[in-house]
Design a protein around this nucleic acid. Structure first.
Lengths: 144, 144
DNA sequence: TATTGTTATACTCTATAACTATA
DNA sequence: TATAGTTATAGAGTATAACAATA
């Protein structure tokens, strides 16, 4: 089937592209948050307060790993925890104002780098193509 | 300028998409190679033999880090080293037949997962959009 | 019993610093 | 002097195993 072939080739191309981008962005730790940390802040920013187990499930890491990430963010004042009144085992985690600020700061830093590369090396039409494809890629990611 | 705004928005969207895909693919270590390792095998497969310093520069890691990655691949028989006749300090690294096999195996495993998600959750037209955008994204990555 | 969260331990990838050998 | 490669050490992110508290 033509569709099947298309999906395979597209998947291979996407995999290569994503690996390259991610690998090159790896060291943009001029910003002060790791990938694990900014993933958690983004999640809390978009979906509101959550507990450790919920964040771990969403991010596909173990609760132990998420516990460490959360502890680091807490120690730096970017998130805060309070007991869940409905369930004595749980803590509800939420962004502090400092966490919101940090999240938006690092977004800008990483984004600027990509934007500059886009402007310098791609045509406006090519940029539009990526712009249209990006949300679709994000959607696919949900099912991996 | 309209272009400037487009580049910023596109960059932000791309960053989100790439982070999500990479994060979700992280544990597809059913296959037997880490990201660092498959990156090296891919490079040798595409560009032929190289030395440690060259691989390190291309992959934007330190020579020490690349030395460790190379040693692991060597120990598992996926690459081999021989002295560079032209420069006594250097070793030339190249893929073994086992390395080529391993490279293609893991490519298939990771790709299948993405292809399945594409087929199940995106329309043929949306898949084509991603297919066209992927090479452009890979090109941008070169300049990050 | 099942779930939430923690502590202990270990592995991988990465880095910096300091060294040897060769150019 | 500069470059190629190595050894030693450390930090971050991840995992598994074992446990306590709560549902």
């Amino acid at each position: 089937m033509a569709d099947e072939i298309d999906a395979e080739k597209t998947a291979a191309a996407l995999r290569r592209a994503v690996s390259q981008v991610k690998r090159r962005m790896r060291n943009s730790r001029t910003d002060d948050l790791s990938a694990a940390e900014s993933s958690v802040l983004s999640r809390l920013d978009r979906n509101g307060p959550d507990n450790i187990a919920g964040l771990a499930r969403w991010d596909q890491v173990t609760p132990q790993t998420m516990g460490a990430t959360v502890a680091a963010l807490e120690a730096r004042g970017f998130i805060e925890r309070r007991p869940d009144p409905a369930d004595g085992r749980r803590f509800l985690l939420s962004l502090t104002p400092a966490g919101v600020r940090q999240l938006h700061d690092i977004r800008d830093a990483a984004t600027d780098k990509i934007a500059a590369a886009l402007r310098e090396h791609l045509s406006p039409e090519e940029i539009r193509l990526i712009r249209d494809a990006a949300p679709l890629i994000e959607r696919v990611a949900q099912y991996l």
